[in-house]
């Protein structure tokens, strides 16, 4: 959490503006904090790029001579891969263990003393982080895709705003998932198990290793409505490459909204349970 600054606004402001101000301040501090890891960002971009090449060629091979597979043409696959490699870092699908670490070391107590709900303050920090990642980690692979490959560019005017919204929802939904995984540390001594399961399933089921369209239709639908994973990566990418007509596009973002709300609510519920437990046990 580092330098969370909860600005105390003058009492004339309404509660809502005050809340937004605090939220904004925390998000900015999150941006700043992650902006110091610039070298790691460079290393990350290189890695994403290598995997971008790998996945692009493999998906293309799956499309075969016809160049079409599961509703994607070659250009759409290129966009899917290169934007996907960038989004991976924006949603920070892997590697976030900060909350679990703080729970394990007991530093979480300091967060609970703050006047901001932990879910809110961690979410704000995460949005700041995502903001920095959008600049440092999303732009480079997208540029590489644009320069070296025939990527598909959206044709409908509504796609871009819809994509931005979809990414925002994906960030929040992914945060919710990670928060829940990390929060198991309140009950478990060692969170490696949940973390491993998360790492394993999130990659495959979010559509990273292959677009879920490669699966049978019923399975794709089951994953999309029954699990939050496609909302993290597959849906924003499908929105961007205009795989479906506009109504379906909007509907997909609706699915994301549903999952995001549900996950955040669950986070708050879990947090409340955990805090009660901490009080009882004197964690």
């Amino acid at each position: 959490m580092g330098s969370v600054t909860a600005t105390v606004a003058p009492p004339t402001d309404s509660n809502v503006t005050r809340w937004f101000r605090t939220f904004g301040a925390i998000a900015v501090s999150g941006f700043r904090r992650y902006a110091t890891y610039r070298q790691a960002a460079v290393a990350g971009v290189v890695t994403n790029t290598v995997f971008g090449f790998l996945r692009y060629y493999i998906f293309l091979a799956a499309a075969g001579a016809s160049g079409r597979v599961a509703g994607y043409d070659r250009g759409q696959l290129a966009t899917y891969v290169w934007v996907g490699q960038g989004l991976l870092a924006v949603i920070a699908i892997w590697g976030w263990t900060e909350l679990a670490d703080r729970i394990r070391t007991g530093e979480i107590a300091a967060d609970l003393l703050r006047p901001v709900h932990p879910v809110t303050s961690y979410l704000a920090t995460d949005l700041g982080r995502a903001g920095f990642a959008a600049l440092s980690r999303l732009v480079p692979p997208v540029l590489i895709g644009l320069l070296l490959f025939d990527v598909y560019l959206p044709r409908r005017w509504a796609t871009l705003p819809l994509f931005v919204l979809s990414v925002l929802l994906a960030v929040v939904a992914c945060f919710g998932c990670r928060y829940l995984v990390n929060a198991t540390a309140y009950w478990l001594q060692d969170v490696r198990g949940p973390l491993i399961l998360w790492t394993l399933f999130s990659g495959v089921l979010a559509g990273l290793y292959f677009p879920l369209g490669f699966l049978p239709g019923w399975l794709e639908a089951l994953l999309r409505y029954g699990t939050p994973f496609p909302s993290l990566l597959q849906i924003p990418l499908d929105v961007l490459v205009e795989r479906h007509p506009v109504p379906t596009q909007v509907g997909l973002v609706g699915v994301q909204v549903g999952w995001t709300v549900a996950l955040l609510a669950l986070c708050r519920l879990v947090q409340r349970r955990a805090e009660r437990r901490l009080v009882v046990q004197g964690g």
């Binding site: 091979a61 799956a62 499309a63 075969g64 491993i196 399961l197 394993l200 490669f214």
Partner: peptide, 26 residues
């Protein structure tokens, strides 16, 4: 947990190949 998780990683590698062959013959 690690034992299981580590098998899982390789299983998914193979699953990925199988899925790809689900949409193409070659």
């Amino acid at each position: 947990v690690d034992l299981v998780g580590n098998v899982g990683a390789t299983v998914f590698d193979v699953v990925t190949v199988l899925v790809l062959f689900g949409v193409t013959r070659e």
